[in-house]
Design a binder for these strands. Structure first.
Lengths: 271, 271
DNA sequence: AAATCAAGTTCCATATATTGGAATAAATAA
DNA sequence: TTATTTATTCCAATATATGGAACTTGATTT
């Protein structure tokens, strides 16, 4: 039943490959409610989840009892505060993030643009940290945010260092969506670009995820820690030319390599 | 078995009052790992959790399978990326936060100091949002962070609007810790101050949680939504005098009342 | 190398919690 | 009021979790 070697699974699989029992079903309900655009009523969840009434009712009451969901007086379920608390802990103590932090700052000092740190989780990139020029818009909006691998700089950088078989697996499971006119829409197109990324050692996002936003990213492969990740420098197209990004590529790669090394030193042999 | 009226439970109880079955036990393990200062090995968790070996092993494997924990190649368990993703969704879509946001910004514009929005969850305050002057230090550190009710401005403000019986319950369960020389250390002392807070309509934090940090806070009681919360303006003692805070109190109260009203309008009758 | 020890994993009969259909109750509308 | 939708509770059947013990694995010592 355990099909993967232990340890390095986290970066590759989000959807359970192992049995997760009743917990898995409960978390599926949690995800459903937490992904919904607006608080849901019992019947709506019933329809979406496909669970039997009695079962769903108990699952929800358990989730509410744990503070993972909250039930308003209007009988609508929405994500609970405990999720924030758990995640806050997770984020604050994350060793990979802690190690990377100063390097992100330095990269930001050099470029003056927004720096992202994202890790590969299943078929998505989850942003772990961000250093922003000024607090222009919402500052936290990005952290914990999940974005597609195939149209973000960090995503393509991360993919470029995956072992061949893992990559094939993952790309096979992707479904492509045209966020902008520049978004890659086929596995073939993506694989083609990954070839170029592997040669250069860094990846661009040429307004593929969001019009008017481009970035340059470099991969971080912390094998021992089972982390496949990436750093990027992002900016608005009107201010940051592709030539500029090209010039920054070296710095981004430096930062990535520095993080990689420090992670290996700090979390590697010692642990 | 259900002892509380439905709907308004979320703000008052964090620890399960209802049975939460196997989910509860799994989440307890998750919390344990996620609260630890450093990634834990199986045996350490075994000792801390008090569960039998076989049981714990399965719980952990389910949590890992769901991406809530991750297991490194060094056989240490640490919080998984999925927590961040779930929380990010929860935060981004939180209606209370969304409604409050512009009011927080306005309050920040008026005062120039850091503005916090925190909600009462069980015996703690969980920070839901923050508007900061400049990105001095870590900007995200505060969101999702849990702080004691008895020594934060937001905490005392929130307590001041709780119904008598709920308040008694909650205060009875507190255990006090001296974060600074100014921290209240007894239920009596806290209740005394709450009396004053109720009269004034706002609360101070006189360097009770962190030396050199003071704030003024006002309560938000969104009954319909089952939310007890608070807004605050926080600053370093060297720059912000108590007199200054006193002057800001009116603005803070205005913001709180505005949020209260808008929540009632937007989430109240319509839903 | 072999032996020892510690840490992690699997096994399986038993106990228990989950399951899910159906009945009930509560809220809302006609 | 009655009708109707929606939420909650009930309970026998069943699947899942439980937990002690056996087993593996890997490191350390003799």
């Amino acid at each position: 039943m355990m099909v993967m070697e232990k340890g390095i699974d986290s970066a590759f699989e989000a959807v359970p490959v192992v049995e997760t029992g009743t917990l898995g079903k409960a978390i599926a309900v949690l995800e459903l409610v937490s992904t919904a655009q607006t608080p849901l009523r019992f019947t709506e969840i019933l329809a979406l989840s496909g669970q039997p009434r009695g079962t769903l009712h108990r699952q929800l009451s358990h989730l509410v009892g744990e503070g993972l969901l909250s039930l308003g007086s209007d009988l609508r379920y929405e994500p609970g505060m405990r999720l924030l608390k758990l995640a806050s802990n997770a984020w604050a103590k994350n060793q990979f993030r802690t190690v990377a932090e100063p390097h992100l700052k330095r990269l930001h000092d050099r470029t003056g643009e927004t720096v992202h740190l994202g890790v590969l989780h299943g078929r998505e990139i989850i942003y772990l940290d961000k250093v922003e020029s000024r607090q222009a818009v919402r500052m936290n909006s990005q952290i914990g945010n999940a974005s597609p691998v195939y149209c973000t700089g960090v995503g393509k950088a991360a993919l470029s260092v995956l072992p061949e078989d893992r990559l094939a697996d993952l790309v096979g499971q992707l479904s492509f969506q045209a966020y902008t006119p520049n978004t890659h829409l086929s596995a073939a197109a993506l694989m083609d670009e990954l070839l170029a990324v592997r040669l250069a050692g860094y990846a661009f996002d040429r307004e593929e995820h969001e019009s008017g936003i481009r970035c340059v990213a470099a991969p971080i492969y912390a094998q021992r820690h089972g982390v496949v990740a990436g750093v990027s420098v992002t900016g608005p197209a009107y201010r940051v030319s592709m030539e500029q990004l090209e010039l920054w590529a070296a710095s981004v790669c430096d930062a990535a390599r520095a993080i990689e090394q420090e992670v290996d030193v700090r979390l590697g042999p010692g642990r």
